[in-house]
């Protein structure tokens, strides 16, 4: 579950950071919520595709969104965590980030769930095809 979550977490982290600083991040989605939603759904698919149990897949979505969000906060705080820049109002600084991204956070979870469903449908479809192919090979 954690391994699968690590596949999708960087995308969530980058999209969140990009949503706050679309002018300096590259490549940028430019605050396009539809593009963020579609990408988030796409990155929900590995969880559904690689995890057979739906409840675990849903927990994986919540896990990778959480990890991605924490990574984006670290990226957002890079000048202050790893360099000698000083934050004047730390509380406001973090509140600003939360305020800017809270809707996006919900969107990621929602899109992730949809991605899980699509991923599981895809996995089932592949399995059906593999089964039918192995049966047809058996007849030959």
């Amino acid at each position: 579950m954690f391994t699968v979550a690590l596949f999708s977490a960087p995308a969530i982290a980058f999209m969140t950071f990009d949503f706050v600083f679309p002018n300096i991040s590259s490549p940028s989605l430019g605050k396009n919520l539809l593009a963020a939603f579609l990408l988030a759904a796409l990155f929900g698919m590995p969880s559904g595709y690689l995890t057979r149990r739906t409840d675990l897949a849903i927990v994986t979505v919540i896990l990778y969104v959480f990890i991605g969000y924490i990574l984006s906060i670290i990226a957002y705080s890079t000048p202050f965590l790893f360099y000698d820049f000083r934050i004047i109002f730390p509380d406001l600084y973090i509140m600003f980030f939360l305020n800017m991204t809270v809707i996006l956070l919900m969107l990621f979870v929602f899109a992730g769930f949809i991605g899980v469903i699509m991923g599981q449908l895809l996995a089932e479809s592949f399995e059906k095809e593999e089964t039918s192919q192995s049966f047809s090979r058996g007849r030959m």
């Binding site: 960087p10 980058f14 950071f17 300096i24 590259s26 990155f43 990574l71 890079t78 790893f82």
Partner: peptide, 22 residues
Amino acid sequence: SIAAAIFFTVALIVSANTYVNV
């Protein structure tokens, strides 16, 4: 998935570095 994860990790690091430079 791994390729996408690497791509977005690099993009995040590059963007954070740009942020530091700004």
